[in-house]
Amino acid sequence: MTSITADREKKRKIRIWAVVVWLLIWQAVSMWIGQEILLVSPVAVLLRLLELIRTKLFWQSIGFSVMRIVGGFLLAMLLSVIGAGLSSRFRKVQEFLAPAVLAVKAVPVASFVILVLIWVSSENLSVVISFLMVFPILYTNVLDGIKSMDAKLLEMAEVFDIPESVRIRYIYVQQVLPFFRTGCSVGLGLCWKAGIAAEVIGIPDGSIGEQLYEAKVYLNTPDLFAWTVVIIVISLVFERLFLWIVDRLVYRMERME
């Protein structure tokens, strides 16, 4: 018997044959147009990527952007958990944070980028943007998780007089983790999209955003595609890695190792 989740995973899974067909379509359309500047072929992108990999600038740009975007994400993760914890305990904190969270959710990324550029250097722009994109999602998710706590389990903890630290770790965290995981999954994708977009506008030296901007200025389509591929790969690797760590923690907790 297969579970519903496994079934869904199967349905969602990307098939290699489908990817190959899309690559062939891309190659065919590119050959039909016959102008690399309009649509570069996948083969040309791959070749350009292999060239880029050998340069120092490639790795420096990746290091620069990863550090800042991931830094913003981790900062948002930390503060959203603390914020949600305080909000669930003190109504005033929740009331105080509610308008700010709503505003951050509603304001377009581009407006934030321009606004933040006035306050901070372009070098640290992606940290702030990544933070602003992730914080409201994770804060809302974690708070929802805490609010949906099973009151009967809390009563059980009360009767057995389970210490607060144990309650937090094994009752609260267990109940909130699925909400946190979903928030992380959404936030991780978003922080990369918004972070790179911010870098393209702010053009900090030695960032992936700067490379994308230069590709646009010089109409260097192979570079544009190659860097886009790099962003997708980094984003996916980071998402998988992070969620894997979260899942491992859940696994260990479930067994109290």
Partner: peptide
Amino acid sequence: RLCENLSASA
């Protein structure tokens, strides 16, 4: 009133 995700022993 068990913690659904925890093991039986836990």
